[in-house]
Simulated assay, not measured.
Amino acid sequence: MGKVTLIATATMGLESLVAREVKDLGYEDVQVENGKVTYTADEAGICRSNLWLRTSDRIKLKVGEFKAFTFEELFEKTKALPWADLIPANAEFPVIGRSVKSKLFSVSDCQAIVKKAVVESMKKKHKTDWFKEDGPLCRIEVALLKDVATLTIDTSGIGLHKRGYRYLHSQAPIKETLASAMIMLTNWRPEMPFIDPFCGSGTLPIEAALIGQNIAPGFNRDFASEDWPWISKDVWDKARQEVEDVANYDQKLTIFGSDIDHKMVELAENNAMEAGFGDMLKFKQMQVTDLRTKLEYGTLIGNPPYGERLGERDEVEHMYRNMGKLFREELPTWSVYMLTSHEGFEELYGKPASKRRKLYNGNIKTQYYQYFGPRPPKN
């Protein structure tokens, strides 16, 4: 197949992190736009990107891009693309779509036209007039933005935030991709202690363990493109062998999570076991204000309640005040990072953040408040 163009999609605010991860994999020609990172790779890049990118939502194969002001243009230009080289004759190829600020605003019509054009394009090479669509999944997307149509095929299948370890979770779990981003935006290193005092189902501690031992986030799951015949099994086997070769299972970690709800603690323990960190991660039922440790120069990351529900705000604000006082007194050498949508967090916490960054937790606009602790003394 040779070179391909890939698009790693990203939650708004995480594009720079995704771009950094892509470059760390060795891929260049990286372009960063709102919600996506585009880059050039090879077949192995499809495998490695799906296995390794911690902060991307999914990896799409870009088939073509062109201006389309009419349905006829959309049909003819879509038909001219090399679909038969990418989609096997028995593949299931549904079409999804979206349209923003474009003359072709009817998404359902665009989907139908693209589907018809792809079928017409594939008929000649595959020498058939009928496609059963009972084989591998090749989900096509037509995305129209300001009259420019981008045609892609999803290589991931299930979103990349689905790591495979979290079969059970809380009602409002933080996505694994956001959890990884929160950790990657800190100064934490594997040899440093790590605490999450609002651990819920354990996502932040588990993602920290994966990062700490350099374990690929996709090591425990499958991807749609594994069934594509033009990406050989050897390419996938080599990519998965790389994952195994570079993992540092001997790296010792000091990671602790706590939650006020004992059911959440049980969930976290079960998910940690599923991820392969059974006895390595420690969880305990406790309030954040009961947190004490003799460890120094660590990193504390939390996704506390935001106080958005009716009747919760006063209780949450009281907790923020006590939390700030406690951390300053009990954890003077620690760096603290808190994600919340509460606009008065800094005042309640009792200290302005060293730095803050806008992030989206689902559809909720939040701020990531970063309080940098002192540098540890040199040994």
Rank of each mutant, 00 (worst) to 15 (best):
I260Q: 11
S341N: 08
S99W: 04
R139D: 03
N214E: 14
P197Y: 08
E308N: 11
H342S: 06
L81F: 02
F131A: 09
I260Y: 12
E33N: 13
T9F: 03
G278C: 12
K23I: 13
I7T: 00
S16V: 10
K125L: 12
Y349R: 02
K3S: 12
I231W: 02
D85K: 13
G2L: 11
K67R: 15
F372H: 07
L144E: 03
D222L: 13
P304E: 10
R321C: 12
E312D: 14
H161L: 09
H318K: 15
K123P: 10
L61K: 08
T155G: 08
E73K: 02
Q367S: 14
Q171N: 14
D290K: 14
L14Q: 10
V119S: 10
V30Y: 07
K116T: 08
F345H: 05
E308S: 12
E329W: 00
K127M: 13
F327R: 04
G200H: 02
E242M: 06
H318D: 15
I364T: 14
E176L: 00
C47Q: 01
V107H: 05
Q367H: 15
V265P: 06
K378C: 07
N248V: 01
P376D: 06
L295I: 04
L168T: 15
F223W: 03
A10D: 02
A117D: 07
P217G: 11
Y306L: 04
K132W: 00
K36V: 11
M12L: 14
L281M: 05
L144P: 02
Q213A: 08
E329R: 07
I195K: 09
R54N: 12
T177I: 03
P190C: 07
